[in-house]
Design a protein around this nucleic acid. Structure first.
Length: 280
DNA sequence: ATGTCACTTTACAAGTGA
């Protein structure tokens, strides 16, 4: 049963185009169990070729794989009980799945999963949050970004088709902040973390959303507190970064803000909105 | 700075992390 639905899903995900195009969505769901209804609706609405999830907050054994398979998707999960956890969903084969990376300063935390889908290496990251500048957690965040960049440089080449997506917990620059003065120097917007992200880009990655949208905005995350979404107090923390071969195929990048709305969809929203990347 | 949310523990509340 599962196999036949997987086959039909693969056909639908291509939108009948048969043109080698590819739709990749990244979404920090803040618990897959709480968000299953919305994830299901997103898969049916967009039929992405890849859905990269962060903060699934379950060990792999408790990931709702059967519900996902019923929609024609396979899941590769790097899970963790209660915190973190990343997963890649696709109707296509997920080849050469890699969980974590050598040199991770916090290897007990599930933050990176990678797989090759339709010839594109998709790397899904959930970067250390960092809590606040000056805390030990912030120092770990900087070290983590350095170690991840070192691994990327060692294992990959900028000439490869590689798409790095996820929740980076860093705003690339002030255009990604609703009120740059209010956020100046604080965690998610501070200089040192932006320098680490910049180093990653300098290796050979392009911020795909900025190819066609100069900003300021759009944002992808709004705090649950203080009615931040309603007041427009957002940040862009969720990014899609591509090597040149991927950037050349990029048609558009959009943010599905409706998913952050409390009144739309099944159950409560995540504090992050999905980012949708379309490649030709 | 914090008006929320989801998780955990030994659970019928409080602490943690985001």
């Amino acid at each position: 049963m599962a196999q036949s639905t997987l086959d039909s899903g693969a056909v639908e995900a291509d939108h009948g185009r048969g043109d080698g195009g590819m739709k990749v969505i990244t979404w920090n769901v803040n618990s897959i169990r709480m968000r299953l209804g919305r994830v299901r609706a997103l898969l049916l609405r967009h039929r992405p070729d890849v859905l990269a999830l962060q903060e699934v907050k379950v060990p792999a054994a408790l990931f709702p794989a059967a519900e996902i398979e019923d929609l024609g998707y396979r899941a590769a999960v790097f899970g963790q009980a209660g915190r973190n956890g990343v997963a890649l969903l696709s109707p296509h084969p997920l080849e050469t799945v890699e969980r974590g990376f050598p040199g991770d300063p916090v290897p007990e935390q599930a933050r990176v999963i990678a797989a090759t889908v339709e010839g594109v290496r998709v790397v899904d990251v959930y970067v250390v949050n960092g809590q606040a500048v000056g805390t030990p957690e912030y120092e770990i965040k900087l070290r983590w970004l350095e170690a991840f960049a070192e691994w990327l440089r060692a294992e990959h080449r900028p000439e490869e088709p590689l798409l790095l997506v996820g929740d980076f917990n860093v705003t690339p620059d002030d255009r990604d902040v609703h009120d740059p003065e209010r956020w100046r120097g604080r965690n998610l917007c501070s200089g040192p973390e932006r320098e680490r992200l910049r180093a990653l880009l300098d290796w050979g990655l392009i911020d795909l959303l900025r190819l066609r949208q100069a900003g300021p905005g759009p944002f992808t995350w709004w705090d649950y507190r203080e009615g931040a979404f309603h007041r427009g107090w957002g940040l862009r923390l969720d990014l899609a970064l591509g090597t040149r071969p991927v950037a050349e195929r990029c048609l558009e990048v959009t943010v599905d803000r409706d998913e952050r709305r409390p009144t739309s969809g099944e159950g409560k929203p995540s504090d992050h909105a999905p980012v949708i990347v379309v490649l030709r």
